[in-house]
Structure formats: structure tokens, C-alpha cells
Write a protein that binds this DNA or RNA. Structure first.
Lengths: 195, 195
DNA sequence: AGATAAATTGTCAATGATGACAGTAATTAA
DNA sequence: TTAATTACTGTCATCATTGACAATTTATCT
């Protein structure tokens, strides 16, 4: 009887536009006007589908976490075939792929903006924890002789370099910096073999 | 004849309050009201000393770069006495000291917000480059046998971990994460000895 | 065709942020 | 004491952002 609901589809579309704006302008800079323009809809629609500002932020947070988790799962799939530290680096730092930095930029913007709200704070931390878990697990599989603490430390370091790479992308750093960061990650991974 | 100028002193005071607000709320969230409240002055004074919004942002950018450069110089002084990778980590990751994460948070917030303005972009990149230079130089002194490319890659990695540590500070991560990040940096530095 | 429920748009009031400037207070030199 | 210059405050106009809701359109089922 009723017109078919577009709630899921439109919500996704708007949240992705929201994510883009937050990555570019920060949370406070991502006004409803900008989000609406980015999504190609009129502003009142944002409210219709996502509610008021606070609810929009909550929804964005959940969306970022969901996308991040999806990325972690995807990485886990790829890393299952990794046979060396070099394989890991090539998978995580591939440039030919369409890895856009929006996600981690939005993740960071949210982390500084909602870090005082325990529920969102934990959700963001958990999403990062999942990625760290994937990476740590892969390292333990590849280097079973190393301590799990070492695997964990290396995973934290590699993740830091990945995050930093996306952060820097807004400054359009020279290609050499990207190479150096990738090499840094490779060195860190290589240190898993030592001793 | 004239009343003595407080321009330098007040400007510094206001810029530091501005830096604090940008670290906490992002560039767009650091409204003049908030900055004025943080600095303990009335809003019209901001305009009196720093000009309009764009000029305030430019001034903040210069201020952040200046403080960052000062930190790099200070680090250079301390690193001059470092005799091992462990010394470097202890100096850069010391917790007893009053290293507050505001600076790097504001640096990041600015980098995503003004990354499209070549002058500010270059200023921010140069400030990071100075820090990288200090760290790379120290590594070359400590490990003269390693290639300079390797020193550079390790410097990039350690810097990434430092930046990430300050980013995460807003999420109040468990102490174990901090330890793991520090250990990751130490592993990276230790890899300078290999081969 | 008509009923129903959702999608979409138009519009206005309220609040928030910035720009601008007049006006007052304070400090120093002559 | 007075002139000169700066520090500081009060206040208003303007624009941007958000919240809210009425009104319209569209798609589906009976």
C-alpha cells in the first residue's frame, strides 16, 4: 500500500556524503548544507532520514565504525594469503587500489570530537581494536616464534604509519614521504624476524 | 607617549588559547567566543590583536609552526646526548614530562583544513620536515653504518607513532596501548642495528 | 480510481557566529 | 596637567546554521 521505503538506501547515501564532508572540513565544518549538496539532496531530507544534529553524529559514528569493520574484515581476507612482511606491506600500502583516506580522516575527526562520550568513544576504539587484532593475528601466524607482545607492538606501529599516511594525504606530501613511510612499515615488520 | 603595547604578549596568550580550542573542537569548532573564553578576554579583543577570521587562522598556523619548531629544537638538544635507540624512545615518549598533545592535534586539524592553501601547506610540511631532520640526523650519528634512506624511513615511522599517540589521547586509550606504541617505536629504532 | 504511507520540498523562526565601530579607560611622555 | 596612543568594552547589523512543520508529490495496493 505505502510507497516503498528508501530509508536504508538514502541513509547510506547521506551518511557517505557526511563522511566525505567530515573528512574534508571536520565535524563542525560539515554543515547540513554541505552534506546535502554532497549527497545531492535537499537539506530537510537529512533530518527526515537521520534526525537532528546529535542523531546525525551518532549515525555517522556507527557508519564509520561499520565501514571500518568492513575494511578490517576485507584486510583479514587478504592477509590470510600473506606469506611475509613484504606481502603485508604490499597489501596495506597498495596504491593502485582505490584506498581513499576519507575513512581514517573521518575516524580521527570523530575521535577528537566525541572522545568524551563513552559509548561513541568505545565504539571507535573497538573498531581500531578489530583492525589491530587482524594484523596481530597475521603476524602471530607468520612469526610464531615471536612473543605476542611483540606482534602487538609491531601491529600498533604499522597501524600508526597507515593512519599517518592518510592524515598527511591532505597536505599532498612528496611521493618520497610515502615511500619512506612504507619503508618504515616494512622495517618494522622485518623486525619480527629478529632474534 | 603612548601606552605600552601588549600586542606581543596578548597575541601569544590568545594564540595559545586558540591552539587549545582547535585541538579540542577542530578549526571550525574553535569559535571566537570559545577562544575568547579560553583566553580570558572579551571577543572584540581577538579582532583587535589578530584581525578577522582568516587572519586569525594565518596567525594560528604561524604560531603552531613556531611552537613545533621550538619543540624540534628542544628535541635536538636532548637527542644530542642520546646514545642508543632506547635513549631516543625515553626522551620522545617520556610521560613524567608535561608533553601535552595539543600541539600535534592542532597541527593535524590545520593540516586537513588549510591543506589546499599552498603557503600554509608548505609551512606545516616544513615544520614536520624539521622534526624529521632532527630525528634522522640523530639516527645517522648513532648508526653511521646504516644507509641514510633507512634512517629516514625509521624517522618517519617513529614520528608516525608519536603523532598517533597524541591523536589517540582524546580517546583515553588503555595504558597498554601506549606501552605497545612505545614498544613499536623501540622495535623500529632497534632495527637500525640490523645487518 | 482512490486510499495510504512514504518521499520530497518550501519556508519561517530561533539561535549562533562574525564583522564593524563607537566609545571608555588606562598609561606614558612632554 | 594634557596630549597621544593603546587597551578594552558595549552593541548592533548581517549572515550562517539549525529546528520545525506544513504542503506537495510519488509510488504501491485494493
Amino acid at each position: 500500500m505505502p510507497r516503498p521505503s528508501l530509508k536504508d538506501q538514502r541513509s547510506e547515501q547521506i551518511l557517505d556524503a557526511y563522511l566525505t564532508c567530515v573528512a574534508q572540513f571536520g565535524l563542525e565544518g560539515a554543515t547540513q548544507e554541505r552534506v546535502a549538496a554532497q549527497a545531492g539532496v535537499k537539506r530537510p531530507l537529512l533530518r527526515h532520514y537521520l534526525g537532528n544534529r546529535d542523531q546525525m553524529i551518532s549515525a555517522l559514528c556507527a557508519h564509520v565504525v561499520q565501514v571500518f569493520d568492513g575494511m578490517s574484515d576485507e584486510a583479514a581476507l587478504g592477509l590470510a594469503y600473506a606469506g611475509s612482511g613484504k606481502d603485508i606491506v604490499e597489501l596495506l600500502f597498495q596504491e593502485e587500489a582505490d584506498h581513499d583516506p576519507r575513512l581514517l580522516l573521518a575516524w580521527q575527526a570523530l575521535s577528537v570530537a566525541v572522545g568524551d562520550q563513552p559509548d561513541k568513544r568505545d565504539a571507535l576504539l573497538n573498531s581500531l581494536e578489530r583492525f589491530l587484532g587482524v594484523l596481530t593475528g597475521t603476524l602471530q601466524r607468520l612469526f610464531p616464534k615471536a612473543s605476542s607482545a611483540k606482534a602487538r607492538a609491531v601491529a600498533q606501529g604499522v597501524t600508526s604509519i597507515l593512519v599517518n599516511l592518510d592524515s598527511l594525504s591532505m597536505l599532498a606530501p612528496p611521493q618520497s614521504w610515502r615511500d619512506e613511510l612504507r619503508d618504515g612499515a616494512l622495517l618494522l615488520l622485518t623486525s619480527m624476524e629478529a632474534q
